[in-house]
Nucleic acid binder design. Sequence first.
DNA 1: TCGGGGAATGAAAGCGATTGCATGGATTCT
DNA 2: AGAATCCATGCAATCGCTTTCATTCCCCGA
Lengths: 329, 329
Amino acid sequence: MSKPTIYSIAQRCGVSAATVSRAFNRPELVSEPVRKQIMAAARELGYQPSSAARGLVTGRAETIGLIVSDITNPFFPLLVRAVQRTAERMGSALMLVDAEESAAAEVAHVARLRSRVDGVIVASPRSSSAALREAARGLPCVLLNRPLRDLSSVICDNTSALFDAGEHLYKHGHRSFALLAGPSASWAAARRSQAIRRWARGRGVELTELGPFRATFKGGRQAGAALLETAATGAFAFDDLTACGVLAELAGRGVAVPGERSVVGCDDVLLAKTVTPSLTTVTAPMDDLGETAVQVLTRQIEAPGGAPEHVRLPGVFVARDSTGPRSGS
Amino acid sequence: MSKPTIYSIAQRCGVSAATVSRAFNRPELVSEPVRKQIMAAARELGYQPSSAARGLVTGRAETIGLIVSDITNPFFPLLVRAVQRTAERMGSALMLVDAEESAAAEVAHVARLRSRVDGVIVASPRSSSAALREAARGLPCVLLNRPLRDLSSVICDNTSALFDAGEHLYKHGHRSFALLAGPSASWAAARRSQAIRRWARGRGVELTELGPFRATFKGGRQAGAALLETAATGAFAFDDLTACGVLAELAGRGVAVPGERSVVGCDDVLLAKTVTPSLTTVTAPMDDLGETAVQVLTRQIEAPGGAPEHVRLPGVFVARDSTGPRSGS
DNA sequence: TCGGGGAATGAAAGCGATTGCATGGATTCT
DNA sequence: AGAATCCATGCAATCGCTTTCATTCCCCGA
């Protein structure tokens, strides 16, 4: 026999389909004995409501989409987990797609998801503002780590944490710094660079800007090599992955960290605690970011056409072993 | 005005809804001019077919589910990417859930996904065979890295690659080995341990078994500490994450790798190339695994009730910097 | 005793697509 | 020229569920 429906159950219990539906969605409208009987029959038949049918009439897919620019970047798994967990708590499933670094794929995916989800979260979008705006037209959408006036956004602001990082190095005697810039298309990269520049200027210390480098391990090695061309003893890497590359490059060349150079990363991915030396970095509040994004999205879904929301969550500086006193020279 | 449907388009073009539907699904049945007109109107109105409605009548969700035991384990991102990519190529979307290490969550998620997907892939399941069998009853399902007679499975078999790893160490003069076992609930762990035992016995070398350890960085550090209690110069870690922990612990205690001890990991996660020293390990054919899993699943979906398939893909040994000649003693 | 009100249930109308069958006009064959 | 074909299209049923409105029945107050 085929898949059980509310009708199978209705028939079996001698009630109408409407009652079965109510037993599930508005149990208080159904008398106790009938409800119990229905539930029993449902369990027995292994009934599962068809979400397609429900979605068709309610107009809700109970699903949200998450587009990440590159799932292999260690930044994302924690985010994915937070988003999925929150979505589930709100009764929604998560549809995930990986844009594999391509801006075009990003907007194509938004289009593809349109008909299957109630809304989408785009994490670290690479696309142009115009493309994003266009792609999200008429679809609840929140951007992660990319502000845009007409779309909701949740961003992690590391500005003040990076100031702290600077101060931390300064206190350790460092006076000459290098900024290893991240990809120019990344809003986060621009913002971080800006924060560090501002700090350096305010502090009146020397800052050499290098890059941009790709946000990969390899990019980090290149950055490490470039760093060694300078006399800077304190280096700000764009993110942890880059920082790890730097560390590897320095280690490979026999340069001691933090003995000879101090390196700070950003994001505090799992990797950061794992490498040797463990990375001094800026912790992004992943769980909060993911949770907030889902909540904002949910609000957008429930009140379509509402004003976009913009949430800013600060990162926090955390000192570990990749930074230390400036070597006596 | 509300969301466009085939009726809006039909009306606008002076044709029936059926024709519009055909224009999309069976274009060869619609005359050229009409088809063009419909397409134009669709584009203009920003029409997107409702997948709920289509799903209701076709009985297909065009979606597959992927349940991973722990998305933060670096093993998974590559797999997720491969699965998503393949699913997309087959016209399906990917619904992802993270069981967060819980066996109970695993089966609960299968149940929850039932009504929204055409089938599910369960990666590295932690649940008991009986629970899995029960959860997958009547739902196309393929297991990844866990064989089970009545369910399809795709597994990565590292047995022969681990033999290679052993030989590699042996050639480098190692004669005393440690096996740092992984979680006892993991089929992969059991299988790997078995392979190594077999090799050691065959080779007639000494093998000390330690563990089980959790498959985390911390677990690896413990394993590292345990390793140092022994005289073994060659260590087989359960996986790369564990191996990284071992490396960190040894580094922390000033033990040189590969100078004093050689360590081999397993899986070849991104991490493996990243750490210092880079990890000698066994590469799992991630892309193949993901792709094959989706293909097998698709077959199951198309021919429900067909016999389960079992695919076995071999890992391949790769030597890097965490192994080397046994220190002269 | 009778009417009003509330609780439990049923009937039926969609939701937006797909699809088998029917139809009508143009084309082709004899 | 009349019949047989075929192509493009329309009609209408259907998928499984939710939800409005109506109905029935029972209890209570006057």
